[in-house]
């Protein structure tokens, strides 16, 4: 049984990555080849020729069809084989699985599970990523670590103080109590940490120009399994949003992660930072891109190390959980619930 829920939507790529050519991604243990047709449709097929398993991603794309780079089996966008070398008759079994994809909010979402259950209305939203009111920097880092380690990492931001000190971490992050909510029907976890009088970390001081101490709110909204939103509000101390109308005194940063399991020990870590200020300031864009990449790489190093520790540990190793883990524990439980439900459907 896989450690992830199969019957869920996952981000396979940024839309911008699926352009000319063939893109290989293994999503939830399924090797996929992604491409875009001439009429703009994104396609995801199994990345194995039905003949001798050659990766279609290492093949040739011509007229919206993939021609296998080994023996020339040719597949259309639905995965049906339309030509086989020397054959007049195409064997009926000559078809590679095709997976439902949906493009939204600058992502290519894919449904790996039972294809008749794919419902695009269930895809969680991150509208900032494709909004003219925000400027976005983004990247993707492959982790050599299981996806649950990235979920743990992101659900408990107190680690910012220690792992990301000097970038986004300040003492107040680890010292401020959190409020956690779980919507049991919608399967959403919300973790809120509101710091009223906090040191301004360099990440925000240099990008916003705020000098001195700040009101810093972190509101995490996790839609298991894949989409993680961190609504970050930075404002002068004492500023609170008005009951109505725009929150003009504050800077808003929407930090988004897509957490996509690749294999049981590898994960795609898609990261984005969207801001509603200094939209055209190239220096701010460059600063946030560089700094957030540094922060993400600090996590990558830590999580890759943690994976080796977890793989090598004895069965039934007992962790210790404390108050900061309240949201992370809730996320783990919902992931288990979704995973169990997916297996029941498939069985």
């Amino acid at each position: 049984m896989p450690s992830w829920p199969r019957n869920q939507w996952y981000v396979a790529a940024y839309s911008s990555e699926v352009s000319e050519g063939l893109l290989a991604r293994t999503i939830c243990g399924e090797p996929l080849v992604l491409y875009r047709t001439q009429d703009g449709e994104a396609v995801a097929l199994a990345d194995r020729c039905v003949h001798r398993r050659y990766p279609l991603s290492e093949s040739h794309l011509k007229d919206d069809q993939i021609i296998c780079g080994y023996h020339g089996f040719t597949y259309d966008r639905t995965g049906a084989c339309v030509a086989a070398p020397g054959q007049k008759r195409i064997p009926r079994a000559a078809r590679v699985p095709s997976f439902t994809v949906h493009e939204q909010d600058s992502f290519v979402w894919v449904w790996i599970g039972d294809q008749d259950r794919a419902d695009t209305t269930q895809i969680p939203r991150a509208p900032w990523l494709a909004s003219p009111d925000y400027t976005v920097v983004r990247g993707m880092e492959p982790l050599k670590a299981r996806y649950s380690l990235l979920v743990d990492n992101l659900m408990d931001l107190s680690h910012e103080t220690y792992l990301h000190g000097g970038y986004i971490g300040t003492p107040e992050v680890a010292e401020t109590p959190i409020t956690t909510e779980v919507d049991e029907e919608a399967n959403v976890v919300y973790v809120s940490r509101h710091m009223d009088d906090a040191e301004c970390p360099p990440f925000y001081a240099k990008s916003t120009g705020i000098e001195g101490r700040i009101s810093r709110w972190q509101d995490v909204e996790y839609h298991p399994p894949c989409l993680y939103l961190l609504h970050s509000r930075i404002a002068p101390v004492g500023s609170v949003p008005p009951d109505e109308g725009p929150d003009k005194d504050a800077f808003h940063v929407e930090v988004v992660y897509a957490i996509t399991p690749s294999t049981e020990h590898e994960t795609y870590d898609f990261w984005m930072v969207a801001r509603d200020f200094a939209l055209d300031d190239a220096d701010v864009t460059e600063f946030l891109a560089t700094n957030n990449h540094t922060v993400v790489m600090q996590d990558v190093v830590a999580l890759d190390l943690l994976e080796t520790v977890v793989e090598g540990e004895k069965d039934n190793y007992q962790e210790l959980s404390i108050n900061i883990d309240t949201g992370g524990l809730a996320a783990r439980r919902i992931l288990k619930k979704l995973t169990d439900a997916s297996e029941e459907v498939t069985a």
Binding site: P177, I178, T179, T180, E181, V182, D183, E184, E185, A186, V188, Y190, S192, D219, N323, T326, A330
Partner: peptide
Amino acid sequence: RMLGGRSVYRVVW
């Protein structure tokens, strides 16, 4: 209240 669903559990530190 941050989440609006009917079945929302809440934990406050």
